[in-house]
Write a protein that binds this DNA or RNA. Structure first.
Lengths: 321, 321
DNA sequence: AACGCAAGTGTATCAAGATTCGCCGCTTGC
DNA sequence: GCAAGCGGCGAATCTTGATACACTTGCGTT
């Protein structure tokens, strides 16, 4: 314990000498009476311990032109385009997008706001993974889950943790929806919505969202949204597709023009409705990759999004097609 | 211009590959069809261009014990102790303190506040140098100079720039005091205070400070406070010293117990008075080094400070003596 | 008490990255 | 139109930092 603290001090000292003052490892070593190897190891440890952080800032307006074009075309208030290393590697894209989004979010004023979040989106989970802690705590800040549980129990745990971590990092209080995201009937859903105090609180907060980090999804079943008792069946997906659905925002389906598709599926979902999304400037989406293109375009056309973080390829297609 | 943008994109791309994805320089080189040397140079350039930032975070509570002791002893609300590399190198200490203070300030909620600032303090100028831009703009945030000009014209330019830069970085509007800091008589001072519109505005804002980044100084003349028409003379310094002065806060003198020393010098200064300092939690000082010890202790005893960033040696002496 | 094991350190060595040097292509001035 | 100058690039080289290996030390076990 005390040794641990001493070690942290030492790491910090060495890290400051190396990074801040630019002193060579050998010089640090000799001035502290240790070996160069130890200095190297201490620096590694310091990096591990997050004492040293190396971040790559994406300069404002790097892709100014394409971003402005997108803003103009879809009436967005903010667009960020990230260059993906490999446009076909969806997992990689999500990591990159999450990281970029984390930086942007870090610069946003969130304290005191009610923030809708859903950890059923891979890119949003990447965002949480990349987010850096901010010291600004505020109990008035609320992080509300916008969708009930979906998928196997293991994932549910991940999800809860993700929300919790997100709340910790932005310094707010999490409100969980402790109920399945999709139920077998409207009656069961209504019962579940009122079952748990915390869930009721969260659901109530959905009417007061200031910012929503929405997940945009396709109409195909893919991880982590795997088939299960608390998710739509293949048949249900086929049904909404036949009604014209090309994507969904937190499991609310929309067609290619972004117009909501009303169906009985709506009444099976415990989660935010499109009408509940915050009014303006607070609809934040992180989505990219080839598979999501149709869904993203639909979401933009329907103006369900006003701040978008996406990859270069998607951005270009959104302008071209 | 366009080439510059392209270069920045390229630097960002390479930087992301290297730092974020951890790819070796040679691999980056071959995958982009350039030489390893160029990758190295691009990375250097990216660092230069602040696209890559490596920061050493001083972990919370590294020196928890000593900080808590200081808090308790002097009724401070926040203390940060920084380990100085060389306790006798005052310039180095100031850089270190400035850097630490910049990190702390970066985590503070400043938007909408009226912030008093003075660039006649070396440590505060170091702070500005180390501060990183925050995107959070707010026109309601005001940065007010707390002291008129002091020293030769060259320094005055630096000072203005420092204030301007500080305002830019925290996203606020600067209010300058365009008048000498010290005048030859009370009459001249009163005339100067009303001479310029901007100055009047700034002076008025001093009554509404939410946060003050105060400068703590000794009673000796040293750079940048060199003798000049707009500064106290050696005789004046000797005079207040004979009245018991051991230090000054923005040129307001205090004795060893922190009690203000009233003298005719007060009426010669254009700047914030001790009474105008914000009520609680907003008196932020960055000061350390052997020479300033007496002054810091006096400031603490008088409770003119409630948030302190200082060096280890000073911290220890403050507890010991 | 002796042994075995794990954690941590230093030495020597190896790999990675920085730098030097010379080449090439472009601009600029005569 | 040509030579001089300049800037940027890559190959080779050198420096710096990472790592493998061996050794010590401290602690728990037999």
């Amino acid at each position: 314990m005390a040794a641990d603290l001493e070690l942290r001090r030492f790491m910090t000292k060495v890290a400051r000498m190396y990074y801040t003052h630019g002193i060579r490892q050998i010089e640090i070593a000799s001035s502290l009476g240790i070996s160069q190897a130890r200095v190297s190891r201490l620096l590694q440890a310091a990096e591990q311990a997050k004492i040293v952080r190396t971040i790559v800032v994406i300069p404002e307006g790097l892709h100014a032109e394409i971003e402005e074009d997108l803003q103009a075309r879809y009436g967005l208030s903010q667009v960020h385009v990230v260059e993906a290393l490999d446009p076909s590697d969806e997992a990689g894209i999500n990591r990159d997008l999450g990281e970029a989004a984390a930086l942007i979010l870090g610069a946003m004023q969130l304290s005191g706001k009610t923030i809708g979040f859903t950890s059923w989106s891979r890119s949003l989970r990447s965002l949480v993974a990349a987010l850096e802690p901010s010291k600004k705590r505020s109990d008035a800040t609320r992080i509300v889950e916008m969708l009930g549980d979906v998928g196997p129990p293991q994932l549910q745990h991940d999800s809860t943790q993700s929300t919790q971590r997100f709340a910790d990092l932005v310094g707010g209080t999490p409100l969980f929806i402790r109920a399945p995201g999709v139920l077998s009937s409207a009656e069961v859903r209504d019962a579940m919505m009122n079952y748990d105090v915390h869930t009721r609180e969260a659901i109530a907060a959905l009417d007061e969202l200031n910012v929503a980090l929405v997940g945009i999804g396709t109409c195909n079943i893919d991880a982590p949204l795997e088939p299960g008792g608390n998710f739509f069946t293949v048949e249900q997906f086929e049904m909404v597709k036949s009604l014209g659905a090309v994507g969904q925002i937190n499991l609310r389906f929309i067609d290619a023009e972004g117009i909501p598709i009303e169906s009985e599926l709506d009444s099976l979902v415990i989660g935010v409705t499109l009408a509940q999304l915050p009014a303006h400037g607070g609809r934040f989406a992180v989505a990219g990759g080839r598979s999501k293109y149709e869904a993203v375009r639909a979401a933009l056309r329907g103006h369900w999004i006003d701040t978008l973080v996406t990859d270069m390829e998607t951005a270009e297609r959104l302008l071209r097609e």
